[in-house]
């Protein structure tokens, strides 16, 4: 069991190294490994909640989601308690693990979009992912043609092909036309 006493560690690096062997992180890692791909967004939300909105989160963004330099910075400031830092570090390690599982070439943002598309594709994450890849760089009418094709192939839910699907693609900037335009094109 990890010591909560800062004086028991020579440095931030030592602390993070001990944390990676600690039961708290190892059991979290087990949970991540045992979960289905469908649980990714839940785990991601949980990790973000653990990291919080404080300075740790800001360093996390500045350092491009690298755990070690973030911990070094927060350790140096020495205002947060070790229990709090431990929770945040487990959040960051969880995100690190999740991002390593993300398919090559898929950014975190794209993975988020896939998660939102999944229910529209009857829960089929691979179909959602393939669709997202296929429409990269397409013009609006090409996108709606693709959607019509996938609806006819019963890969996209008929009930979700209008507003639900439009909103996901519009919010992430892939389809910039209005909902009315979308509804005119998607049969």
């Amino acid at each position: 069991m990890m010591s909560s006493n800062r004086g028991d560690y020579a440095s931030a690096s030592e602390w993070i190294s001990v944390l990676r062997q600690d039961e708290a992180w190892l059991s979290q890692q087990q949970r991540l490994m045992a979960s289905a791909a469908t649980d990714v967004s839940t785990h991601r939300d949980d990790a973000v909640r653990r990291i919080g909105k404080g300075e740790t989160f800001e360093f996390w963004e500045i350092y491009g989601h690298q755990v070690e330099p973030v911990i070094s910075e927060v350790w140096e400031i020495a205002e947060l308690s070790l229990p709090k830092l431990k929770i945040q570090a487990i959040g960051m390690l969880s995100m690190e693990w999740i991002e390593q599982q993300t398919p090559a070439g898929f950014s975190l943002q794209q993975q988020n979009v896939v998660e939102k598309l999944k229910p529209i594709f009857y829960g089929q994450i691979e179909d959602a992912r393939a669709f997202l890849v296929s429409i990269q760089g397409m013009k609006p009418t090409q996108i709606t043609d693709k959607v019509n094709q996938l609806v006819s192939e019963r890969k996209i839910s008929d009930m979700s092909k209008h507003r639900d699907l439009w909103k996901v693609l519009h919010d992430c900037g892939i389809y910039d036309k209005s909902e009315s335009n979308w509804n005119m094109q998607v049969k």
Partner: peptide
């Protein structure tokens, strides 16, 4: 923060270390 850290009152220490203005949405 230093007083609460010395006194091991960690919830108070952390509240102040990550004090957030909900009005201005800023640390």
């Amino acid at each position: 923060i230093s007083v609460y850290e010395y006194g091991h009152y960690q919830p108070a220490q952390d509240e102040l270390a990550e004090l957030y203005s909900t009005e201005y949405h800023e640390l």
